[in-house]
Design a protein around this nucleic acid. Structure first.
Lengths: 298, 298
DNA sequence: TACTATTCATAGCTTGCGCCTATACAATAT
DNA sequence: ATATTGTATAGGCGCAAGCTATGAATAGTA
């Protein structure tokens, strides 16, 4: 059974004749006759009684009408609905954030996304970079919001922004009140380090290695918020994302830029290199970009 | 868009791969790839992201699944449902009876037909032979129950039974008590004639013409029941179908056969020569045959 | 009643599309 | 690195749908 056969059939029913139906369908009348014959053979019943110059529906033909009409409508529906549904933002999207980003952007991003695309179903994962990469590769996630570097060659990244890391310290240390901070001064103070399972932890470490600074680490934590609290309690200083200072500042803590060398991390949207970036994914990325504190409040 | 394309699509979704789907659909994998590509072009969106050795659904593909599945189910339904519905006696049937038959058979025929085919929709017309013929030709009616002759060459007839016409008379006339009645005796009595718009009226007239009997008609009526009542009141005698005597006898009236020449009418089911005789039509005809009083009670 | 016009079916030919095989290319597992 | 698995591309083939021409039969008309 073929769709055009059903279309021919309905055309005959509506026009009342093979010839008129053929004209409407832009085919020759014999072609249409042949196709109806095939349809009849497949169904096992005559659809029309041929009275010579006239045709009338058989019972089988009568029963076919609603079924055929329905199928044709649905086929038409596919061609119309899917493109329009996609423009309306229907569909699903699975995204991942790393823990040193999500606190600043997740709430506002989810809120805006849900408002703009109420029809979409959003699934958010918080994971370490490594896991996000893996899930992007396996297509469990559509978009990952992480920071560079990402070395997996199956993934592509779109840069969202470059975020500066600031020196966070309490007033207990005089570094908080200096006019400008030099890189070399970092090792003069006890340092609160983020565990290296976080890319931010790695980034800080590699920055210091590059700048030949030998930190005196007094504490390793596994959450950025813990780092923050430790700094506030005066246990030491640390390097934290600017977004933390903007989004969630603590009164007792000062956030100062290093004057002679800027530690930075690049925030990116990572996607699978072979996968089509859906409309929802694109829009999501733009929302993250605009809602990111360092951009958003600027 | 073609049905096999949707089938290929669903097969890929269910098997998770083009190759496996191709095997299930009994086509080569490249053929299937081509058809999916065409489908994607027509819909205007990619349905799968090709990750090399793996494929994953896009949002558009996700949306297509239920729609495609539904269409495939419905197509399958057509091939299954229509034949089975017809076997179950679904469908419609329009039948016509002439007024000199309908009183004896219509009630019981309708009852039995409705019992046997509760799903069918039956439409019954009572009309003169001429109108029934016209409606059979124009396909407004599927079956006509009439009596011969029918000369229209677009119609074919199936003989149901041959019905004898009996002499009906009241006891007022001695014909009622004779051992046997001769044709020639008919003109000895006043005769109640049925109007010639009825074929029965014509048949009686032509019978008498053939037998060279010159009736002394005292009354023309347009209904057989009126003829019957007139006979009962002793206004005259008449020739009536055997079915009337069986189905609806009046006590004061005697019904006697003519001994030397049997007036008869053939009851037939007439149908359009070019139209397929539906299952319902066939069954209907058999019901009429078996429910006709002259057969039924025999 | 014969003639004409209309309509569907059939026959024979043409063409395009779906299918096939072979092969290239890419990703994952070993 | 190599083998294996899986999809895309290229080129050729055959069937099925399409077309034109014609036949058959009905319905309207002179």
């Amino acid at each position: 059974m073929e769709i055009h056969q059903l279309a021919y059939f309905i055309a005959i029913v509506e026009t009342g004749s093979f010839s008129k139906a053929a004209e409407r369908c832009s085919v020759a009348q014999p072609s249409l006759s042949q196709q109806i014959k095939k349809l009849e053979t497949e169904i096992g019943h005559l659809l029309f009684d041929r009275l010579g110059r006239r045709v009338v529906l058989t019972n089988a033909g009568e029963m076919l009408i609603p079924k055929a009409q329905r199928i044709l409508d649905e086929v038409q529906g596919i061609k119309v609905d899917i493109p329009s549904d996609i423009e309306e933002g229907q569909g699903s999207l699975a995204v991942g954030f790393i823990p040193t980003i999500s606190p600043f952007v997740l709430p506002s991003v989810i809120r805006r996304f849900s408002q703009e695309f109420p029809q979409a179903s959003l699934e958010v994962h918080e994971d370490l970079t490594e896991d996000i990469v893996q899930k992007l590769v396996s297509a469990e996630l559509d978009v990952g919001i992480t920071s560079l570097p990402i070395k997996n060659k199956m993934l592509q990244t779109e840069e969202l922004l470059t975020e500066t890391l600031l020196v966070a310290s309490s007033s207990k240390y005089d570094i908080a009140s200096r006019a400008s901070i030099q890189v070399k001064e970092l090792d003069d103070f006890p340092f609160i380090a983020l565990n290296e399972v976080h890319c931010l932890g790695e980034q800080v470490q590699s920055f210091c290695y590059q700048e030949e600074v030998d930190l005196s680490i007094v504490c390793h934590t596994s959450q950025l918020s813990t780092v923050h609290k430790c700094v506030a309690m005066g246990l030491g200083i640390s390097l934290v994302p600017q977004a933390l200072a903007i989004d969630d500042p603590i009164e007792e803590v000062s956030y100062r830029a290093i004057s002679d060398s800027l530690p930075q991390r690049k925030i990116v949207a990572a996607t699978h290199i072979k996968r089509h970036r859906s409309y929802l994914a694109q829009q999501f990325i733009e929302i993250v970009r605009s809602e990111y504190p360092s951009n958003h409040s600027a």
